[in-house]
Design a protein around this nucleic acid. Sequence first.
DNA 1: TATTATATCAAACGCTTTGTTCATTATCAA
DNA 2: TTGATAATGAACAAAGCGTTTGATATAATA
Lengths: 183, 183
Amino acid sequence: MDRRKQKTRRAIFQAFSRLLEIKHFNDITVQEILDEADIGRSTFYSHFETKDALLKEMCTDIFDHIFSSDLQSERSHDFSSSDHGLQEKITHLLYHLKDHKGNVLGVLSGESGELFMRFFKEYLKAMFEQYPESISQDVPKEFALNHLVGSFAEAVKWWMGNRMKMAPEELAECYLKLIGYHA
Amino acid sequence: MDRRKQKTRRAIFQAFSRLLEIKHFNDITVQEILDEADIGRSTFYSHFETKDALLKEMCTDIFDHIFSSDLQSERSHDFSSSDHGLQEKITHLLYHLKDHKGNVLGVLSGESGELFMRFFKEYLKAMFEQYPESISQDVPKEFALNHLVGSFAEAVKWWMGNRMKMAPEELAECYLKLIGYHA
DNA sequence: TATTATATCAAACGCTTTGTTCATTATCAA
DNA sequence: TTGATAATGAACAAAGCGTTTGATATAATA
């Protein structure tokens, strides 16, 4: 990809991210993004069809990065050297979210949160399905899975909204207690 | 309140509700509401400051009605004759939501869901606090409460999004199983 | 380096939506 | 009946959107 294009794309993402930290998605105008990123109007539209498309691509980028880095061993808190249980997996995920709080916090709350959550839940669903023992047998499977995904997403939202006071390990442990999971 | 004002207000609510069933909140224009409700532009703005205000008032109306009717005994599935446990309370609530699905479904999904959920959670929080035994002692109280509220709200969203195939009693039972509640 | 392709730019455009205003008409409550 | 209040319809400025244009700047390539 052309260096210029990369540079502009990054500028837009960063500007958008900065704006999301101070105001809701719906209140952000394209003009503000242009000013913040210091780019021309037509340039923006050569990158993204709409403001919504921008949000969508940003979410994709974030999750692809977070979830794909699960498979690599670049970070200190990585556990990829071997298979590991749900607790480690969750802890690991929380660390990644914490690392990306700058990007995540903006898209997480307000009206943009709707889209973020949709993406997040897709990934989470795949994750929990890798741990069948976490899915209760006492209720319909779809309901049980929705409960795991939904309540975890809510927990993360709560956690990040509260400045992540709890440590990732602690949050993971508490969450597993509440869903009655015992490794 | 003036009859004319009531009539117009009702027309706006109903038109808005109808529109929410076929498209997302953000895609609805004031003009569409005017056309659907068959009222003038200035009339709309004499009732509501903005489209957001309309949504907000509508949510308030819905919840006030649902939660206040908890205290009356007008409906067949009412349990207000005596104190009752969390399971009955939840079942009762689910019946009310089902009764109001026309209004609720629209504001529940899409971008308007964000606001709906905020309202819903406030009421739920108050409800769960009336049943201290439902709040786990093993984790920080704030976290436990958030878990109850968040996962229940998610369950309702899932349930209504799936055409409410499960009976309210069944959903209540399944939910309580998953949060490990035993009356 | 010279050439070709492509990204960015600024400015302007038509269009939609918004929220307000105002004079007029209809409806209500007393 | 009368005075107050609500609804109407038309028009308005302002803001935002997405597109187009032709010129300029920067990258990849031969």
